[in-house]
Write a protein that binds this DNA or RNA. Structure first.
Ligand SMILES: Nc1ncnc2c1ncn2[C@@H]1O[C@H](COP(=O)(O)OP(=O)(O)OP(=O)(O)O)[C@@H](O)[C@H]1O
Length: 761
DNA sequence: CGGCCAGAGATTTTT
DNA sequence: TCTCTGGCCG
């Protein structure tokens, strides 16, 4: 679980004794530095050494003052940041705790930390590396009171946001069907990131939908404030307020950091840029690194004007351009250039490489999504056999999360291990969220959303209706939901039936019991206690498919255990914060194929990349085709994907694709980005005529092969194994060659009669 | 008034 | 394919 799993060795401070109030920012940040250690990056970083070209060196060794590095993919931007951090420390004598490096994702932060730690001994853990959101969350936890953010605030998750908007819409009588909560939330989020307040948003509203969004926002903000909750965007806006106050938070951060470095600058929004300026206003020691061609988050209010404004806001800034690509073969780079080349108004930036031409870029034309997935899976299996590659060398990068399903199925069938680094996050699962709701309520008894969820999980005889009554009274009296609930139990308003009262009283007692326990228990112990006390353990035990869910709770428990050596008073808050910020992505320590969206792949690199779904409607996505600016962004999205590949790139295009709306397969046209490719250095392959989906689907199923637990089997990639469990189509097999690790594999790909190594052992 | 079951809707990208 | 919502039954 990336972002949660951490080693406890290496640069980590002894846990701080005492309460949060006594902890200084320095101690806190140091703790945070040690707290955020991640697994190894997918590609091992290049060993420390000279390894810098003259332009890179100039950037690394730029002294004080503002520095803007504009450079294409694979030109070593991230490498320059890392090396610059090291250089500032070793040559300019900047102390680690005086350096703040900001990344776009928590994952990128982890990788950067990993790289820096390899180059600086000892004190490297004191360098602050994280996202803007994480940075703001942290300073707000400590000093937020100054801007009206209570220290026990919680970060509300996207689902809660939806719920609030739905509630607001319902209560204001707006038919929810007409205005999609998601779109309203998007508008609210964009406004917040552009630092547009609620009032200004209302004033600016031109269309009816904008007016609705502004109206919803007012009540949405109110609901969050009452719940002592912040959404992701509030973190930035309130964090900025806090720094601008020039109070204690400023003294402990802006005055402490002598150098601020920002990666992926092209995807920062106004709030983030203002934050960066506020943090560096006295010394101007800011390093911003980005690539305009890779700006793919405008829908989240990222604003390329930040790059233009940078030179205006820091008049003495130096601009360094890097144009040598170290990542990809020449043919891949040529394909990339063809994809991006046609962008209107783009400054021509030539990117070149000394790398060999390499394999041709492969454009694969397949019948449908099933064939596409099948091709990917078998090709990976082939390359592992014939070329001696590892699973970790491969990435499948797609436009939408829903594309992963078919590919997962094919990979499982072939027995290929994979990891997903985007899509549904671990903590989005029902059972995990239910348990987290209890913890959130323990942490913050104003959290009305957690209150509702916790009270309903498990069902205890208090339903939606009673909650609605409580909520209504709470709103009228401006009181907390928990207070009103307590009053109701004591016989006050609202009048509830005796059975409901009893159930509610029990619930309140349980929460109270947990809250007092929280003062003494370690984070993981508290989770265990909450799981039992809440009755969720019992509920899961009764559920038919409770085993998998129980496993997820176990995962949560192990994640929390990483916080056990923090003082109980703080560990819960820090754990919940981490959960909200990272979503608990899977650990990527083991050797596995990566499945990710194009957005999620930004900044990463893989020897072999598959890009399925190169079709009009998927890439570019149908919802972007109305708007020229959005189409340009799709082109950049494609460019980002192509430039992830180091050695080989497969672009896959299906002639038909299933349309869930029509519940039918439809013909699809090849992506316009494919049309842009040069004919040179490209090989086109097609399965046309061999493998049409109809024939395939209607073909008589082969003799089904079934195994029993304990059977010895053989698999082409993993060798001898022993069946642990088996269904009609899949078997769980433990393989000796992989240290007993278990794989889910399609029965068709297993041969009976291998040596059952478990019995032999 | 709460719980359970059945049917509909969902998918663009994320901190 | 899975998750929420609304209607019906206890
Ligand atoms: N001077 C160099 N010599 C050798 N290899 C280099 C050099 N500079 C960078 N590289 C390698 O090139 C690859 C890309 O570097 P890096 O990830 O820093 O690029 P980037 O500009 O951040 O790319 P992106 O924009 O895609 O995030 C890495 O594998 C890195 O080790």
């Amino acid at each position: 679980m990336r972002g949660i799993t951490r080693r406890t060795d290496g640069g980590r401070r002894a846990p701080h004794e005492g309460t949060r109030g006594e902890m200084t920012w320095e101690e806190w940040a140091a703790e945070a530095g040690g707290r955020e250690e991640y697994g190894a990056p997918p590609v091992a970083p290049t060993a420390p050494g000279p390894g810098l070209n003259p332009a890179q060196r100039a950037a690394v060794e730029h002294g004080d003052g503002a520095l803007l590095i504009l450079a294409g993919p694979g030109s070593g931007k991230t490498r320059v940041i890392v090396r610059r951090i090291v250089w500032l420390h070793e040559r300019l004598g900047v102390r680690p705790e005086q350096i703040l490096a900001v990344t776009f994702t928590n994952k990128a932060a982890g990788e950067m930390r990993e790289r820096v730690w390899q180059m600086i001994d000892g004190e490297a853990g004191e360098i602050s590396i994280g996202t803007f959101h994480a940075f703001c969350a942290r300073i707000l936890r400590h000093y937020g009171m100054a801007v009206g953010v209570p220290s026990n605030y919680v970060i509300c998750d996207p689902d809660d946001q939806q719920t609030v908007v739905r509630d607001v819409l319902r209560m204001s009588g707006v038919p929810a069907a007409e205005w999609k909560p998601g779109e309203i939330l998007g508008a609210i989020s964009r406004a917040k990131n552009e630092l547009i307040g609620a009032r200004e948003m209302a004033l600016r509203a031109k269309s009816r939908s904008e007016t609705i969004a502004a109206e919803v926002r007012e009540r949405y903000d109110e609901a969050l404030r009452a719940a002592h909750a912040l959404d992701f965007d509030d973190l930035l806006a309130r964090g900025l307020d806090l720094i601008k106050l020039r109070g204690e938070a400023y003294a402990r951060t802006a005055e402490r950091y002598r150098h601020v470095l920002i990666d992926e600058f092209q995807d920062t929004n106004l709030a983030q840029y203002e934050l960066a300026k506020a943090l560096t206003s006295t010394h101007g020691n800011i390093t911003a690194v980005g690539d305009p061609d890779q700006s793919i988050y405008s829908w989240r209010a990222a604003d390329l004007r930040n790059i233009v404004n940078f030179e205006r806001d820091f008049p003495n800034s130096r601009v360094v351009l890097l144009d040598q690509n170290y990542r990809s073969t020449r043919r891949i780079l040529e394909a990339a250039r063809a994809v991006i080349g046609l962008t209107s108004g783009r400054q021509e930036r030539k990117l070149w490489t000394e790398n060999p031409a390499g394999d041709p870029v492969l454009v694969i034309d397949v019948a449908g999504a099933a064939e596409e997935a099948e091709f990917i899976a078998t090709e990976i299996a082939r390359a592992i056999r014939d070329e001696g590659r590892d699973f970790g060398d491969f990435a499948v990068i797609y436009r939408t999360n829903s594309q992963s399903r078919e590919i997962e199925l094919a990979l499982v069938r072939e027995g290929i291990p994979y990891q997903m680094t985007s899509g549904t996050r671990f903590y989005d699962r029902r059972e995990v969220r239910d348990l987290l709701a209890w913890l959130r309520l323990v942490q913050n008894d104003a959290d009305a959303l957690a209150f509702r969820r916790a009270l309903l999980a498990p069902r205890r005889g208090v339903g939606q209706r009673s909650i609605e009554q409580l909520r209504s009274v709470a709103e009228d009296e401006g009181a907390l939901l928990t207070e009103v609930a307590r009053a109701a139990v004591a016989g006050g308003e609202p009048q509830l039936r005796p059975t409901v009262c009893t159930a509610l009283a029990t619930f309140l007692d349980l929460i109270e019991e947990l809250r007092s326990a929280a003062a003494e228990l370690r984070a993981s112990e508290l989770i265990g206690r909450a799981f039992t006390t809440s009755g969720q353990e019992e509920r899961l035990a009764q559920e038919a498919d409770g085993a998998g869910k129980l496993e997820n709770i176990g995962e949560l428990f192990r994640a929390a255990a990483q916080y056990d050596d923090l003082p109980p008073a703080e560990s819960l808050a820090i754990f919940l914060e981490e959960v909200a910020l990272t979503g608990g992505d899977e650990d990527e320590a083991h050797d596995a194929v990566s499945l990710t969206t194009l957005h999620g792949a930004k900044g990463l690199e893989y020897p072999v990349v598959f890009m399925p779904g190169m079709e009009e409607g998927l890439l570019p996505h149908a919802r972007t085709m109305q708007d020229a600016a959005q189409l340009e962004e799709e082109r950049r999205v494609c460019y980002v994907g192509v430039t992830r590949a180091q050695e080989r790139l497969y672009l896959l295009r299906a002639r038909t694709r299933f349309n869930p709306w029509e519940n039918a397969a439809e013909l699809s046209a090849p992506s316009r980005f494919l049309e842009a490719l040069p004919s040179d250095g490209i090989v086109q392959l097609s399965d046309a005529g061999q493998n049409e989906p109809a024939t395939r689907d209607l073909a008589a199923p082969e003799q089904p092969r079934r195994f029993e637990p304990g059977d010895g089997v053989w698999h082409a990639l993993h060798g001898d194994g022993t069946v642990v469990a088996c269904s009609d189509t899949y078997a769980t097999v433990s393989f000796a060659s992989r240290g007993g690790e278990e794989f889910l594999i399609g029965n068709d790909n297993l041969l009976p009669g291998g040596d059952g190594w478990l019995e032999a052992a």
